[in-house]
Nucleic acid binder design. Structure first.
Lengths: 121, 121
DNA sequence: TCTTTGTATTACTCCATCTAATACAATAAA
DNA sequence: TTTATTGTATTAGATGGAGTAATACAAAGA
């Protein structure tokens, strides 16, 4: 899986890595049991520090998306906990995004089409 | 209009103010020409610094949502520019939110219902 | 003249992010 | 056993954004 970092973004690097892996899981590009690159390999590949990648992996581990095992590296978890609900933070963000889109004249259907595209199925 | 700040949020205060005003415009709670509280009044009311509120107003002004006039204060703009498209940053955020919801087992319809609710109409 | 408006300026503290250099424990491979 | 590779902990430093604080300014209404 290819991970791209936007240097201009104000989103922290470790967060960008985390987000792309989460989106990879959602899209099916990453499946349960899949091996992730080592922290050193990914850091070298992206020209960033080892600890930055480690921080992304720690976050993913805390959230239950991956499991790390010394010497086995990091892999996508087989049983990812399903809360079944959208976090309050994501609700706020969604409301903000929809509001901005509405004000700038984006039709509702266009937003819903995006949701369908990103959700898949 | 009541503005509430979440102390625990990692979203900057000036950004939270900006977001709530934007959402107020979208929902219709704030209409074109409406007067916003003065920077000093809002700062005093929320127990924060004057410059923090000013920073929020500057951001809203730059984005074209409000207009500020010395001695007249800040008001919602009458003609807000309609780009007609969703910014790339908001697209990325939307994709992340939808992905996280999907993984945690939230049905697609539930997301779409939220979009309908936030968009209105 | 006095007051109120947004805003500019300067200085300071605080904290998150990122980098850097090491080191450690665990484990597969040689 | 030895070696190499894994994630991770530690410590230190640099950088920048966020927020506060005190002050001052220009504009305009009362």
């Amino acid at each position: 899986m290819i991970i791209r970092i936007d240097e201009l973004s104000d989103v922290p690097i470790y967060q960008q890595i985390r987000n792309q892996i989460v989106m990879g899981i959602s899209s099916g590009e990453l499946e349960a049991g899949d091996q992730l690159p080592t922290v050193r390999a990914l850091a070298l590949d992206m020209g960033i520090n080892t600890m930055t990648v480690s921080k992304a992996y720690q976050l993913l581990k805390t959230e239950g998306y991956i499991m790390t095992d010394r010497k086995n590296g990091a892999r996508i978890r087989t049983e990812i906990e399903k809360q079944g609900r959208i976090s309050s933070g994501n609700r706020s963000e969604l409301k903000r995004i929809v509001s901005e889109a509405r004000i700038s004249g984006v039709p509702k259907d266009e937003i819903i089409n995006l949701v369908n595209e990103y959700y898949g199925g």
